[in-house]
């Protein structure tokens, strides 16, 4: 089966000699919900820029559903919908006009363009704002406008670069639901995000990029399986002078009413509570310190930088 997106040995060296991509290769299958993770400056946006032709590559090949972006750019671009990180529409134009124009650039006849534009403006909750100049929209609405614009020609792949950055929780959740819906309808989705919870919740497969190289390319499930350590924060009723001594655990005192405990995969929490009870420490609440994926992400990136193993 032809991959939805195929990237081979992609390299990018900018005019200032900065090497943003060092020969990355990647395949995303049709229908996938794929996450591209990486710290700032890792090369995520450069990769999307090359796919969308806004950045000229130094070397390598990119194909979209088998259409090479160099030799068959028109067919390749027809398959793509791009939602960039920064707002890139005319602030003075009306919402509906922006979406209609984008449909026109993809060759959709006026009547079909209008039907498509109206459909996505309604789906994304922008119908009431259709005649409002884009500059009058809130940040969340502007993001939704960019999604409506990217979908108006019904692309087979939707690429979103940090789509929920700066969006409130409620809107983020509704955006997730919408993305799940269009993915279920068959659109392949590639997402870059800083919110690792977002990737964990939405994506089936993941690639982690750092310093222009792929650090990991695997399924989300396999990635999470590799996580073997979590940190829990315990809150106590009594005042603590020092961190409790717990056999087999690393313990750090946070303040006089809370401490952190590192728990390895397979270690019993019952044993931990028994030790705490034995020392007369009464626990009133307990929570996971950080997003598990975030910990894994940091350790993978650090391991690569130190030239060590990728395992955690």
């Amino acid at each position: 089966m032809t991959a939805a997106l195929s990237i081979k040995n992609l390299r990018k060296i900018y005019d200032n000699r900065f090497e943003a991509l060092r020969g990355i290769s990647l395949e995303v299958q049709a229908g996938d919900f794929f996450a591209v993770l990486g710290p700032n400056g890792a090369g995520k946006s450069t990769t999307i820029g090359i796919i969308s032709s806004l950045v000229r590559k130094t070397a390598g090949e990119v194909s979209v559903f088998g259409h090479n972006i160099d030799t068959d750019f028109s067919a390749a671009k027809q398959q793509l919908g791009i939602v960039p990180q920064e707002f890139n529409f005319s602030q003075f134009e009306k919402v509906r006009d922006i979406v209609l124009q984008q449909a026109g650039y993809y060759g959709l006849p006026r009547e079909r363009a209008a039907a498509q534009a109206d459909k996505y403006l309604q789906k994304l909750g922008l119908w009431d704002k259709r005649n409002t100049p884009a500059r009058m929209l809130s940040g969340g609405m502007k993001r939704r406008l960019m999604i409506a614009r990217a979908l108006v020609h019904e692309p087979r792949i939707l690429i979103l670069d940090e789509p929920t950055a700066g969006v409130d929780i409620e809107l983020r959740r509704s955006m997730w639901d919408f993305l799940r819906e269009i993915n279920a309808e068959g659109t392949t989705i590639i997402l870059t995000t800083h919110y690792l919870e977002e990737a964990e919740s939405l994506c089936r497969n993941v690639a982690i990029i750092d310093h222009g190289e792929i650090v990991q390319n695997t399924s989300m499930r396999a990635l999470l399986k590799r996580l073997n350590k979590e940190v829990f924060v315990f809150d106590t009723t009594s005042t603590l002078a020092a961190a409790p001594s717990l056999h087999g655990h690393e313990v750090v005192l946070v303040d006089e009413h809370s401490f952190e405990v590192e728990v390895e995969k397979g270690q019993s929490l019952n044993g931990l509570f028994e030790q705490l009870s034995g020392q007369g420490v009464e626990i009133v609440s307990m929570r996971n310190k950080a997003n598990r994926l975030e910990e894994l992400f940091v350790s993978l990136v650090n391991a690569k930088r130190e030239g060590g193993e990728h395992g955690v």
Binding site: L54, Q78, N88, S90, Y105, Y106
Partner: peptide
């Protein structure tokens, strides 16, 4: 230039418009 400045020119550049 306004399209370049506001980056709305990218709407055209990412499209298949020759």
């Amino acid at each position: 230039f306004s399209a370049k400045f506001q980056r709305s020119i990218e709407e055209l550049l990412v499209s298949p418009t020759p």
